[in-house]
Amino acid sequence: MLDASPTATCPAHAPADHPAVKPEKVGILLANLGTPDHYSYWPMRRYLGEFLSDKRVIDYPAWKWQPLLQLIILTKRPFASGAAYKSIWNHDKGESPLMTITKDQTHEMAQAMEAIYGDQVMVDFCMRYGNPSTKSKVDEMVAAGCRKILFVPLYPQYAGATSGTANDEFFRALMEQTWQPAARTIEPYFDQPEYIDALAKSVEEAYAKAEKKPDILVCSYHGMPKRYLMQGDPYHCQCQKTTRLLRERLGWGESQITTTFQSVFGPEEWLRPYTVEHVAELAKQGKKRIAVIAPAFSADCIETLEEINEEIFESFEHAGGEDFTYIPCLNESAGHISALSKMIQNNLKGWLD
């Protein structure tokens, strides 16, 4: 994908029977969480089975977790999750919104990189769960002559269950290569000025369009068990810093913005406050107009289009809330692509200057 590699040739001074070798280039591999191939039962079951079997996501012992997962959760959950996906599905293209947006992001990034580096780079994307798999895209890049690969998990804040597991899968793919390329992974970019500026501009644009100014902006991040924080995962701290930097960039007071966490799963305590509960509490406190943004997501997906726009909105409305504004993810916006492009350029130094 997005590659126009010259034909492979026999290296100079090599014997005539030497295998043909593609000219060297640098691969830029964007990575997102993943998506089921369809919202029907079996594709949903395959996707959820892969996702919920990841030890980075659910770290319970296999002997305890797998029977529960295989016999109970994967018997029922694909129906509920499938219905949620169906409600947001891109029926015209036969794919989830996350897939559509990630393709668009990749296209925009490929054009941006080609303008800077010409045919020295190959830009593509992979998914941690589902298709296209990380392994398949690493295989394609190596076959196309990529002797160096920059791996770019599209998660602003680091978490073991997002960036960490994406990197794990990338390294596993490298283990299967006969001739391994040099590899780099990017750092979290939650505090990069270009990313914060892109977030701030999306907020400013949404507020400018609103008929009535929201009373408060809720920054809703994907949740994780509190236990992970206590074990040293930096995600919670990076989320809090993202909100603070966004507030400072907007020039707001502390009462105008708050941090919450969504997508709670299982019986143990997760990072608090929970978005679905907090928006209801805000409504009861008299904050009848709120805006919600999801700074941990690089692309709109099931957690934003369905969970925020439906479940969290309904919680706010039922508690007496009146005006609910969802501010879309940065997606393939010019500001987002520019921020990612600058970050990628910084990480390519020494490889391509």
Rank of each mutant, 00 (worst) to 15 (best):
I88G: 03
T185I: 10
S202T: 12
M44H: 00
D233T: 08
L29D: 05
Q177C: 05
Q70A: 07
R272I: 13
I312H: 09
T162S: 05
T75P: 07
S315M: 10
Y39N: 01
A143E: 11
P97R: 01
L71W: 15
E194A: 08
Y326D: 05
Q66I: 14
G82S: 01
H91E: 06
D139E: 14
H107K: 14
H91Y: 05
M113F: 04
L217E: 05
V203K: 11
W63R: 14
A210R: 00
A8Y: 08
M230W: 12
E307L: 15
L69C: 04
S338K: 12
F265C: 07
M1C: 11
L174E: 04
T162N: 04
A283Y: 01
I327S: 10
P6S: 11
S81V: 01
H222G: 06
R147K: 10
I72L: 08
E204G: 08
I312A: 13
K349V: 15
N346P: 03
L330C: 03
I101D: 02
F190P: 04
S315K: 08
T75A: 10
D54W: 02
D233W: 03
P19V: 07
L330M: 11
N331W: 05
M44F: 02
E169T: 14
Y39W: 11
D104R: 13
A62G: 06
Q285R: 14
V218D: 00
Y274L: 15
N131T: 13
V292T: 06
D119R: 01
P156M: 00
Q285A: 07
A84I: 13
I302G: 00
L52V: 01
E194F: 05
D37A: 09
A206Y: 12
H38E: 07
I72P: 00
Y85L: 08
K284E: 15
T165P: 13
V152R: 11
K148Y: 09
L69G: 02
G321Q: 05
R128T: 12
L69F: 04
E108K: 13
V264I: 12
T178Q: 13
T260W: 01
I101M: 08
S87F: 04
Y158T: 06
E140P: 09
C219R: 01
K349S: 15
Y235C: 09
P15Q: 14
R249M: 07
E140I: 08
Y39S: 03
L98T: 12
F170P: 08
Q192I: 13
N131R: 07
C239R: 04
T162D: 07
P295E: 00
K209D: 09
E176C: 15
A4K: 12
V292W: 01
E281T: 14
P188F: 14
P295H: 00
V279G: 03
T259R: 09
Q157E: 01
A31W: 02
S81Y: 14
L250M: 15
A339C: 02
T260G: 04
W42C: 10
A143N: 07
N32R: 10
V26A: 03
F324T: 02
S315L: 01
R172C: 11
I88R: 12
G118W: 01
L330D: 02
M343S: 03
L305E: 02
K55R: 14
